[in-house]
Amino acid sequence: MTSDDQPGPGLRKTRKRRRRQLYYMGTAVVLGALIGALLAQPDSERSFFGPDVTGLTLDPMAAIGISALILFSLLIFPLWGFTQIDEHLREQNLIGSVGGTMAVLNGYPVWLMLYAGGFVDEPHAFGLFLLAFGGTIISFLVAKARDWLPL
């Protein structure tokens, strides 16, 4: 800031960027909650979140609508978000994406071996989705933590 009571042009742009980022994150949370609410069926055996996702049944129009919402939320919206961030945050996002990919590439065969040995349940689609999602979030947070830690 160039003066205490008058923010400089740079600070005004930074505040605008921060507001835009908050709107983006708020929209992402709302979209995630909406998809979760639509997919969470009262009968857990037939839920998207249950172990047997093949039992899931939806009205055809609802299936198309939810698919479109998922495509928008997990593909179009994040890709557009990539164009709005700077190179540092983009690098952290890419580290997150690699972490998600690695989690599935390694997690699935390990899970399958453990299943074959009788240690865990059979691998299922939602578990793999969670592996990808968890791997992405954890890798992103590890990359982000470098900003916070005095290393």
Binding site: P7, K13, R17, D86, E87, H88
Partner: peptide, 30 residues
């Protein structure tokens, strides 16, 4: 220039975190 990180970030059109990361050597700018 008595600029804050946020001021410099805005002038460069990047986030304040990016300026901090460059200053501390955690990010090499393009």
């Amino acid at each position: 220039r008595e600029w804050s990180q946020a001021e410099l970030a805005g002038r460069l059109d990047v986030s304040r975190q990016a300026v901090n990361a460059i200053e501390t050597g955690k990010h090499d700018p393009s």
